[in-house]
């Protein structure tokens, strides 16, 4: 696969995600007003901010679930959604876009597990159908992944019979099954009961410690402080402030950041 070769020694300096003046409008409403940021290989970045600030939209732009209105966005040095040739941009065919998405895992706020498949089938689906790997191999990998998120004994359960926290952990395993180089988390714990948040965050911490590059939209400031390498505060479609989580959380420089943090901390 061409995408994985990008991870070779030659491209160590290429940032995993490079966003340059990313703009997104829905009709006349501008949701993202020029986001510029960089995520290094192995970095864990937390995106925080009030709802409607564009965090989720930005995340969805990274795997082309939303199409940019302006700006450039590349993952591992590859432009997302477009091909560049002779100084012109060509819109990608759905097939090519799908190929790019294979390497980008995404975890949703509402889990979005396939309800008609068991946990195991959910995890196996994409490697089996998209990558066309042999079934026996996919199944053993899938069982390993479920064990890794602590759900080995729930492999044959349908999502409806799992708790929210368990469903979200299956969703993480499902994304990991494609062996992504980047993981996107869109408020992974916002739909969970407070006592189930911890189990999902623990899995994410484990992932971070193994060196996975992660972008996490979250309201869990404790997680951000403990796990994230960088923290970005967004409001009204712009990056207001960014830096080390400990610094931003302890000494926010902007009034808007201060106001937000005073409410959530």
């Amino acid at each position: 696969m061409s995408a994985t070769t990008g991870g070779g020694a030659a491209s160590v300096d290429v940032p995993m995600v490079l966003a340059e003046r990313v703009t997104k409008s829905f009709g006349s409403h501008e949701v993202l007003k020029g986001i510029t940021l960089e995520v290094k290989r192995g970095e864990v970045m937390c995106l925080v901010g009030p709802s409607g600030s564009g965090k989720s939209t930005f995340l969805r732009c990274i795997n082309h679930l939303e199409v940019l209105s302006a700006g450039r966005l590349s993952v591992d040095g590859e432009l997302i959604g477009y091909r560049e040739a002779n100084g012109k941009l060509y819109e990608m065919a759905p097939k090519e876009a799908a190929k790019q998405r294979r390497d980008i895992g995404m975890v949703f706020q509402r889990f979005n597990l396939f309800p008609h498949m068991t946990a195991l089938q959910n995890v196996m689906e994409a490697p089996l159908r998209v990558k066309g790997l042999p079934k026996a191999k996919v199944e053993s990998t899938a069982r390993d992944l479920l064990a890794r998120v602590g759900l080995a004994d729930r492999a044959d359960y349908y999502p409806a019979h799992l708790s929210g926290g368990q469903q979200q952990r299956v969703a993480i395993a499902r994304a990991l099954a494609m062996e992504p180089k980047l993981m996107l988390f869109d408020e992974p714990t916002s739909a969970l009961d407070p006592e189930l948040v911890g189990e999902v965050l623990d899995v994410m911490k484990g992932l971070a410690s193994e060196g996975m590059t992660m972008i996490v939209v979250t309201h869990e400031m404790g997680f951000a402080r403990e796990v994230a390498d960088s923290l970005v505060f967004m409001d009204a479609g712009v990056v207001v402030e960014s830096g080390l989580p400990s610094e931003v959380l302890a000494n926010p420089r902007h009034a808007r950041t201060q106001a937000f943090l005073s409410k959530v901390l």
Partner: peptide, 12 residues
């Protein structure tokens, strides 16, 4: 969300 999840996994 089902369609989004499938698309995000790289399904055609």
């Amino acid at each position: 969300g089902q369609e989004e999840a499938a698309v995000a996994l790289g399904m055609s």
